[in-house]
């Protein structure tokens, strides 16, 4: 995912951006991402934010949002809230709770069921997500391997909620915060695209400081982040 801003322009819902798209991809097929939709021959914006372009032909609107809307294939962190038949109910912050099958764990079978209780934190991928159905999560990849997904269990960790754009920003290769921090400090972090972040450090003091830093980085540019980091680790 590349974040190249097409100009410094901010769009409001209802704006038509045909000409903007034509200047970048004239006569080509384009892919419209979140916040953009096609009405007749016009491409209209439906969310207020800045227009982004990812080569070769993808456009989307980057906007501030707190509420998660499930999308297939996204990695999310959820909290188990209960059981329903063969499924766990997982709170991922969206309007409907996600379903997680007992068998969607590595090595799970009818006999060997995972033992999770309400309040446990799981990291997984959304296998089914559309507007008419409850989203379904899975903690295995296509080969049936966990691949880093599954129960998140660590004694010194914390889970906290941030805005969705901060989560996207942290995960984007352009953001230097996590790599820079990693070169100075040993810690483990899981960022879910639903804005939930699980953070594990050696001590609670470190965890608290890092959590504060991540929360404040939402409104900092790369250069400002470097300055802050330099001030912290003299």
């Amino acid at each position: 995912m590349l974040l190249n801003n097409v100009g410094e322009h901010i769009y409001l819902p209802g704006d038509v951006i045909n000409s903007k798209i034509q200047t970048v991809c004239d006569g080509e097929t384009v892919r419209l991402g979140p916040g953009l939709s096609k009405h007749n021959t016009d491409v209209t914006v439906s969310k207020a934010g800045s227009l982004c372009f990812g080569p070769p032909n993808t456009f989307w609107i980057d906007c501030h949002q707190k509420r998660y809307i499930p999308c297939k294939g996204e990695n999310v962190i959820g909290v188990i809230s209960g059981k329903q038949g063969d499924y766990y109910k997982v709170d991922i912050g969206s309007s409907d709770q996600a379903l997680l099958n007992f068998l969607s764990f590595e090595g799970a079978s009818k006999r060997n069921r995972p033992n999770l209780s309400p309040g446990d934190v799981v990291f997984g991928k959304l296998a089914i997500a559309n507007k008419h159905m409850e989203p379904e999560m899975t903690c295995v990849d296509v080969n049936g391997k966990a691949n880093g997904m599954g129960l998140v269990d660590d004694k010194y960790g914390i889970l906290f909620q941030t805005s969705l754009n901060l989560a996207r920003k942290l995960l984007s290769p352009d953001c230097i915060l996590l790599p820079e921090l990693g070169s100075r400090l040993a810690f483990e972090v899981i960022v879910g695209l639903n804005g939930k972040i699980a953070l594990f450090c050696k001590s609670s003091a470190q965890t608290i400081t890092l959590m504060k830093l991540i929360n404040e980085s939402e409104y900092l540019s790369n250069e400002q982040m470097l300055d802050v980091l330099k001030g912290m680790f003299l």
Partner: peptide
């Protein structure tokens, strides 16, 4: 609306931090 579920991670972290005379918001 539905209330967000509290995770065990948060629960344990806060209790442990309080024992060290610390709070999660600094």
């Amino acid at each position: 609306l539905r209330e967000p579920t509290l995770s065990n991670l948060e629960n344990n972290f806060i209790v442990n931090a309080v024992c060290d005379n610390r709070r999660y918001d600094g």
